[in-house]
Write a protein that binds this DNA or RNA. Sequence first.
DNA 1: ATTTATTATTGTAAAAAATACACAATTCAA
DNA 2: TTGAATTGTGTATTTTTTACAATAATAAAT
Lengths: 254, 254
Amino acid sequence: MSNENIYYPHVSVDCVVFGFDGENLKVLLIERNIKEQNELYNDKKLPGSIILQDEDLDTAASRVLNELTGLKNIYLSQFKSFGNPNRTNDPRDILWLENTMQLKIGRIVTVAYVALIKIDRKLQVKNENTQANWYDLNDLATMNLAFDHAEIIKKGLDYVRHNLDIEPHLLFELLPRKFTISQLRTLHDKVHQMRSDVRNFQKKVAQMPYVMPLDEVEEGVPHRAARLYKFKKSPLNPPKGDFKSVVLKKDRTI
Amino acid sequence: MSNENIYYPHVSVDCVVFGFDGENLKVLLIERNIKEQNELYNDKKLPGSIILQDEDLDTAASRVLNELTGLKNIYLSQFKSFGNPNRTNDPRDILWLENTMQLKIGRIVTVAYVALIKIDRKLQVKNENTQANWYDLNDLATMNLAFDHAEIIKKGLDYVRHNLDIEPHLLFELLPRKFTISQLRTLHDKVHQMRSDVRNFQKKVAQMPYVMPLDEVEEGVPHRAARLYKFKKSPLNPPKGDFKSVVLKKDRTI
DNA sequence: ATTTATTATTGTAAAAAATACACAATTCAA
DNA sequence: TTGAATTGTGTATTTTTTACAATAATAAAT
């Protein structure tokens, strides 16, 4: 193993942030503007950047997300790293990297994180390179995404889906503080790509100790108003355990 | 974001390879010998190394594992990256890196992979730095492991446990080609840290279309010989789907 | 040849969870 | 007051999970 073969890649973090508008799943993307032969070209990228010298990966992800969107205290989960040597080969991406980072970069290995947040959280715009917007997941196919960010988003969604089987309470990060069971059901069905039965879903919610009915109903709807619920995480009985034990409940005879 | 803050870490891959000896789970570790003030110091490390310039992460993991153990065609799953800036701070680790890599290294971000293999696979020893041995997971606490490799192994085991709920057939990678239900049960219980009921476990196995009974029994045991079974992956009905659909079976009304 | 020791193998009943299925209640707006 | 839209509710059936113990097979020991 000789020294000559060793290469110094850059390491970045990228954040796939999902939101839910009551209808569809959305992902948070940064507008990217590239001047190309006097034409202004716009595409989108995930919030992400190169890590700093003395920075842990998790710390870098939080910092970068905050720098680009103003978001703070976001629960980020690392889900996969992407290191295809060709992922930074697109001329537009190279151009953008040189302009933004003042950097000639041969290769970037990125560590991807995922987060679920309420879609009405305030997003700061600090400069022209930090304009973040929500985009419908269904529209991604028709959009131009930087690097391999389309693949990263897809993998991020897979990860969320997979992990909700174990930590279903993550779903509530996507809903407003007060929500109706319809909203919860729509979201649940969207994420799991299914159509659940209304009555059975109600039953399931009733069994969740961490979903509490409120003495309030929604307002301003042109029909019967639905009761509002809130999500309550109990410090003693973290919801995490509830489903996990169900999933794992196999022949358990001590 | 100025150029000065940007740092050039190295990127490595590490492989957590699990085996099963019929009794306990084992992990494959490389013997590491360090000369320290004329004393020879021995500890263990995961098979891993720095990635090459034009190499994908998955490719690097396969290459490194092969270079260090001779193993080929191993199904490796990336599970997590580790980038704590302090993970390469131990003087012994620094010394070893300088000796082995002829390299002064400030920081290494490592991408960790996990694999399950049959414990009787031949391991090549190419030189003094590629002596690999199986170590019982229960003994790790008392051993000296390089870098943050103890943590990586722990996270790797968590990943395996978690993923077996979705791809239970991975378990069979750990068993000999012909195995008894007892062996399968012992392994299952060890991985899931539980004690299953014999009869219910038999029932469960009977329902697995990919576990086929053979017209053979084990030999050389001082008691009634158990029937042998083999694992059969069907190309049309990949076992992957079997459990997944069960786990996900929620109110499904089209 | 009989006994002893050890492990393999098998079924059933009870409980829990998942599923399928339809109509009445509430509210707003016309 | 009627219609349109959406909320909210119960029960029977099926499937899955769980709990539980006696007999069969074999080798070794007497």
